[in-house]
């Protein structure tokens, strides 16, 4: 029950723009939860595994994950299903484009913080085209005209500045993250987003707007991963560990790709970076029988 209060309190704080309250709630959750015990460093393999997993707050993270799953099953997923079943696909695309267009200030602020004028120019041009030709952002003619969208956030800016991701972190309501990207989210939503900044400065006039936008973004995002998420839940042995691994790999890939290609003009950006993001993979060296049949 107490944890639920933190969850709701923490989430409301983000929306209402009271960063101190949100952070205080997070800190309290951290301090009341136990840590996973580290193995003896002399057991090199166990220690290497512990460092690779990099989830020192695992017991707390698992507890928050359970609460998030409950909230998802009860609230978010039903809405996402209704959204994807009852709303015509064209409407869904329109809403998705519209929400993307609203992200412009945050993306551009981060482009500028990285002193990437090229990216900032693309973001600005996309906004002009999509807001006018795209009827307020419902369409995305900019992409067809060769102005490819790129995502940017303060977590990426921190990565560009050399900040590592740090340990795994499961945030209440928001989901998987890490200290760098959680900080990024707070900065994006409370400072770099104009409406968020207004709320942070104490003006609640646009609170209903930002609340609607947050809810719609959550439903839109969730509706895009309905099947994938169900499949992972069904096939994984330890759902928490599978989500942790998938989130981390996915975010690393995003950030690596972004950093690697950020100076290239959009037209020369490939879908794929030169090097695969995952360097660790099944090694063939200690596996002499590649075509060894499986035991019957």
């Amino acid at each position: 029950m107490e944890r639920m209060t933190f969850v709701v309190d923490g989430a409301m704080a983000t929306f209402r723009g009271a960063p101190t309250r949100f952070l205080a709630a997070l800190l309290v959750v951290f301090s009341i939860s136990g840590c996973a015990s580290a193995p003896d460093p002399s057991d090199t393999e166990a220690y290497a595994e512990y460092q690779e997993i990099n989830d020192p707050l695992e017991p707390m993270n698992r507890a928050i994950f359970q609460v998030n799953r409950g909230l998802d099953t009860l609230i978010l997923k039903p809405f996402a299903i209704m959204y994807s079943v009852f709303l015509p696909p064209a409407f869904q695309t329109g809403i998705h484009n519209f929400l993307n267009n609203l992200q412009t200030p945050v993306i551009m602020a981060n482009d500028l913080l990285q002193t990437n004028m090229n990216n900032a120019g693309v973001t600005f041009t996309r906004f002009l085209i999509n807001t006018t030709l795209g009827v307020g952002g419902l369409g995305d003619p900019a992409t067809e005209l060769g102005w490819q969208r790129h995502e940017d956030d303060f977590g990426k800016t921190l990565a560009v500045w050399g900040v590592g991701e740090g340990p795994y972190l499961m945030l209440p309501v928001i989901g998987p993250s890490n200290p760098r990207d959680a900080t990024g989210r707070v900065v994006d939503s409370l400072i770099l987003d104009p409406i968020g900044l207004l709320g942070t400065l104490g003006n609640d006039a646009l609170f209903p707007y930002s609340m609607t936008r947050t809810v719609l973004t959550a439903v839109d995002t969730r509706s895009r991963f309905l099947d994938e998420f169900d499949e992972v839940e069904k096939t994984s042995l330890d759902f928490y560990a599978a989500v942790r691994s998938l989130y981390r790999q996915n975010r690393r890939n995003d950030v690596d790709k972004f950093i690697y290609q950020r100076w290239k003009p959009a037209s020369e950006r490939e879908e794929q970076p030169a090097e695969p993001a995952t360097t660790d993979f099944p090694d063939m060296s200690d596996m002499p029988e590649l075509d060894e049949p499986l035991p019957e």
């Binding site: 997993i53 560990a241 691994s245 890939n253 993001a277 995952t278």
Partner: peptide
């Protein structure tokens, strides 16, 4: 960019 083998290994 998400490795199937790596995900299984963690799981």
């Amino acid at each position: 960019g998400t490795s199937l083998s790596q995900t299984l290994r963690s799981d």
